[in-house]
């Protein structure tokens, strides 16, 4: 049993890199990624788990980084949009550009991570599968249609 009161040193595995840093237990993973590690591609939209803008992959699964304390992420591997883009744009990212699946771009990293996880587990998703998988991510600009099209195209392996 480990009790942590004030600031504590933790070790996080983010995008395959190990980071040691000091956090208060109450620091949300979203805040630590953004303001301690400078990974500002993770965006904060509501801080109550509804909008999905802060979605990251924890051990490969989409989770809300505003509903996880950074201290809880010790021992897990976290992937953010910066990790997804480490070797240039993926097929999915290129499909987003080709299909105009983004406008202001604020929700986009979270959509990309959610869709990346979906395509990993479902090779040939239907439009309905896609709409359900991204239904926890709010986009206020696009009306979702081009996002769905982009994910469908990436699933089919269509290249621009």
């Amino acid at each position: 049993m480990k009790t942590i009161q004030a600031t504590q040193s933790i070790t996080l595995n983010i995008n395959g890199q190990t980071h040691s840093l000091d956090v208060e237990p109450r620091f949300l993973l979203s805040d630590v990624l953004r303001h301690k590690l400078g990974l500002t591609g993770t965006h904060v939209g509501c801080e109550h788990g509804v909008c999905g803008a802060c979605t990251v992959l924890v051990d490969g699964k989409p989770e809300r980084s505003c509903l996880v304390f950074a201290i809880q992420a010790e021992g897990s591997s976290v992937e953010t949009i910066e990790g997804l883009s480490a070797d240039g744009m993926t097929r999915l990212q290129r499909a987003f550009q080709e299909h105009h699946a983004l406008q202001c771009g604020f929700c986009t990293p979270a959509f990309l991570l959610t869709a990346t996880a979906l395509l990993k587990q479902t090779k040939d998703p239907t439009e309905q599968d896609i709409r359900e998988a991204i239904s926890g991510n709010i986009c206020r600009c696009t009306g979702y249609q081009f996002i769905v099209d982009a994910i469908l195209a990436a699933a089919k392996g269509e290249e621009a």
Partner: peptide
């Protein structure tokens, strides 16, 4: 035409207000 803005937005490289330090 596909957008010039997209590359920075798709990779999380863009800077919104709360990203400014």
């Amino acid at each position: 035409v596909t957008r010039k803005e997209d590359a920075r937005l798709l990779t999380g490289a863009s800077r919104y207000l709360d990203d400014i330090e």
